[in-house]
Design a binder for these strands. Structure first.
Lengths: 234, 234
DNA sequence: CAAAATATGACAGATTCATGACAAATATTA
DNA sequence: TAATATTTGTCATGAATCTGTCATATTTTG
């Protein structure tokens, strides 16, 4: 599950540079030269992040950003603005239309990557590729593999994403609706109770290494992935 | 029990942006394009906070604020005003009509959230997600966990909310009716005496870490959560 | 001591969850 | 392409837990 990043930039050289950088960092780059074209791309895939140039031919970047943020389908997608210089005024306007961050040109690849990573982590921590290990259970997003005490644990796609989300947001209670939003995606319509079933499937799989208790149910609230036991001293 | 925030703003783009921000921060967003419409919404649910634009078509924001503050039913609801710029004069007028805080457009999401949280903390502390720790008893809303001297204390949903409310409003006596309103919600109809039973259940659970005395009975008035012992020297 | 207020234990009805089964949708393989 | 395996969402059922109320102690106050 590598993140898709859409670059909207009219200058081909800069676009190339950006795309290169993005790929280097392990993400998937989609490109577009104009807001109009970008709009078409969105029909096929919703990216996880949009890098948007401030100045564009046709519809300007600011205008497009505003439009993205007012559409239910796209408003949740974080936007990083590319502005000509570190103009404070631009920054303010950018944030006003809903940009999540901004980068000034010329930019350093390092800075760009840092900001991309930060924004992705803020919005969807489970999008990052860092391996996670908790209480003997480890999950590696790049190899798509889960092992408990070094024995392999096979998981279906949904269970994998679910576990990934849980491990990226451990200790915290998540309501069924939140889980549906974060793991299934916000455009699907599924029954709340469906989460229960997947929880059970996940627990079932985790039994292979006796890690099933890491997933705790919090009655009336939702579920929690926690290394701390819920037992009480006797 | 997440806080409901009503946004009254006629510009759709800004409204969308505000709503987005509010949801992202974990609150519930209700929206309205005019003061008149807002008034209707109030008939169904009383929000915990109102974000009110300074300038509105029809009844202006200032006027509406004044009206809200003069109605017994709504005057306790905190109001954050959205003003065009940091005009000192506007600020004064806003506070004059009873606004609790104000934010100047363009605003940064971060600032907005900070102010929302601050205002909510003042009015309805149990709506925020801050962990609380009193006399060795700690409660964390995000993980939905209660520990007394580091041992886990399991609580049912109602007892959890009750304790959360108590700890957020410690050292103060709450009548049964008040508790019913704040913890159960104002639309339920339950017997006053039911509170007694839940108090007992809560005390019972707290006995696990010998914290049961934090919940004190104030004969004739209600209950109080207090770290100060009520014992008298003999 | 009598009256009033609160504590407690029990209980039945409601909620909320876990679980197994199943059919539809998807992906994989031959 | 057809056949086969996986995966997914939903449902029905039963188990577990929670809730509100009542009847009955117990405590406090005047």
């Amino acid at each position: 599950m590598t993140a898709n990043i859409l670059v909207v930039e009219d200058e081909p050289a800069i676009q190339e540079l950006l795309a290169l950088n993005i790929k280097q960092a392990g993400y998937n780059a989609l490109r577009s030269l104009s807001a109009e074209h970008a709009q078409q791309l969105l029909r096929e895939t919703l990216p996880d992040l949009i890098l948007l140039d401030w100045m564009l031919p046709g519809m300007s970047g600011i205008e497009y950003a505003r439009r993205l943020k007012s559409d239910n389908l796209t408003k949740a997608i974080p936007i990083i603005m590319l502005t000509a210089r570190g103009d404070e005024y631009d920054k303010v306007r950018g944030l006003e239309v809903g940009a999540d961050d901004y980068v000034t040109k010329p930019f350093s690849p390092r800075e760009l990557n840092a900001r991309i990573k930060a924004v992705l982590r803020r919005r969807a921590p489970q999008m990052t590729d860092d391996p996670i290990e908790i209480a003997g259970l480890s999950l590696d997003p790049t190899t798509h593999r889960v092992t408990g005490n070094n024995v392999n644990i096979p998981l279906g796609p949904t269970e994998f994403r679910l576990l990934h989300f849980f491990m990226s947001n451990a200790e915290r209670v998540h309501s069924r609706t939140q889980l549906l939003d974060k793991v299934w995606g916000d455009r699907v319509f599924v029954e709340d109770r469906t989460v229960d079933v997947h929880i059970r499937r996940l627990r079932n799989a985790l039994m292979a290494s006796n890690h099933q208790d890491l997933i705790q149910t919090v009655r009336g609230s939702g579920y929690r992935f926690s290394a701390q036991s819920t037992e009480q001293a006797s």
